[in-house]
């Protein structure tokens, strides 16, 4: 199911969508399923399931440590697909966020079909651009899967247009020139980037990198269609056996996207 359903619902409510990320297999495969289900229950509209990869380029220290834990515990691509299936069963559109090599390794066609079979919405591909994504684009288009590419403050107008034209579902705007990880200020680069992106496409634009509380979420929701949160969820889950902290954080962020 495409993320577009979630965006339509959020738009009908007159608010931004809340997108939550966790790596599959953190703190365990079952634990990540329970955590993501709790995030959906507490107000996440869309879930990004991270595929743990050995050589992340863009992950900040918080996510990298969680991913390493998932890998050390033997999390496989098949586990990731199992997580997708369990989370998608809640009805929340579920994307996989992955480095590129695991997709090529399984085979792009095979990966796309496995994603469809698990009920996944599509892929977020942070370490490739549409320039190298021809085969994935074809495989995704044949199956109506979402293709979420990233735009950055440094993207030229030409590259920004190329990227949004290749995207389906939403466009992911990286708010700071940096990697993932909660930060204090988020909007200086984000707002102009979102404005540029929205001028180039009718697709929803989500902002990620650096959002850790409801106030920041409200700020982002003021100009973006989706607020994407990752590191803050991971950090909370590190010391949160009963998921109460995770649910509380989700609720705070969900209030934020409602402009609270």
């Amino acid at each position: 199911m495409s993320v577009s359903t979630a965006f339509e619902k959020a738009r009908a409510d007159g608010r931004a969508a809340l997108v939550g990320y966790l790596p599959a297999g953190f703190p365990s495969v079952e634990g990540s399923i329970e955590a993501m289900r709790a995030m959906v229950d507490a107000g996440c509209d869309i879930i990004e399931v991270g595929l743990p990869y050995s050589d992340p380029v863009m992950d900040g220290p918080t996510i990298q440590a969680a991913v390493q834990q998932a890998l050390d515990q033997g999390t496989r691509v098949s586990d990731v697909l199992r997580v997708v299936e369990a989370v998608a069963a809640t009805g929340a559109p579920t994307l996989v966020m992955t480095a590129w090599n695991p997709v090529e390794r399984l085979g792009i066609e095979r990966f796309a079909q496995a994603l469809v079979d698990a009920g996944g919405a599509g892929l977020i591909t942070p370490d490739i651009t549409p320039d190298e994504a021809g085969e994935w684009t074809a495989a995704a288009d044949a199956r109506d899967l979402d293709k979420v590419f990233l735009v950055a403050p440094s993207s030229t107008p030409e590259r920004l247009q190329l990227t949004v034209d290749a995207s389906r579902g939403f466009v992911y705007a990286t708010a700071v020139m940096g990697v993932t990880g909660a930060r204090e200020t988020t909007s200086e680069l984000a707002a102009p980037l979102v404005e540029r992106t929205k001028a180039a496409t009718d697709l929803p634009v989500g902002v990620g990198l650096g959002i850790s509380n409801g106030a920041q979420a409200a700020e982002i929701a003021g100009f973006a269609d989706a607020v994407i949160v990752g590191s803050a969820f991971v950090r909370t889950l590190q010391h949160d056996a009963d998921l109460r902290g995770l649910s509380a954080l989700t609720a705070d962020l969900a209030e934020g996207v409602r402009g609270a």
Partner: peptide, 12 residues
């Protein structure tokens, strides 16, 4: 070969 890199580094 090619360039499998985040968009944030493409301009650089």
């Amino acid at each position: 070969g090619g360039r499998f890199m985040p968009e944030a580094l493409v301009a650089a």
